[in-house]
């Protein structure tokens, strides 16, 4: 079982990385790009036999307190088998 956590900058926060990647895509000729947001992806391997619901609760807590900073970032947590 794995936890997958995707962290992205909040829309209100300046994202110069996303902007730079967007400009580069345009320069390369990829049209129709309306916005790019560069974030982080964290994958956590869970020990065999871990309770899925308990893991989701604990990791949601960890994502809010530590893995992301709610002042500047949003996160999405998913647990997959």
């Amino acid at each position: 079982m794995k936890a997958k956590i995707v962290i992205t900058p909040k829309k209100a926060v300046l994202d110069p990385q996303g902007k730079t990647v967007q400009t580069a895509l345009e320069h390369m000729g990829y049209t129709g790009v309306a916005g790019v947001h560069v974030g982080k992806y964290i994958e956590i391997d869970l020990a065999p036999g871990t309770d899925k619901v308990a893991a989701a609760t604990a990791l949601d807590d960890a994502a809010r307190k530590f893995l992301s900073n709610p002042v500047i970032e949003d996160y999405k947590l998913e647990i997959v088998d």
Partner: peptide
């Protein structure tokens, strides 16, 4: 100190990277 919640706000990447 911002990460610890002892000060308000956060510091992000400089606008010109």
């Amino acid at each position: 100190l911002c990460e610890a919640g002892l000060l308000p706000g956060a510091l992000v990447r400089n606008r010109d990277l």
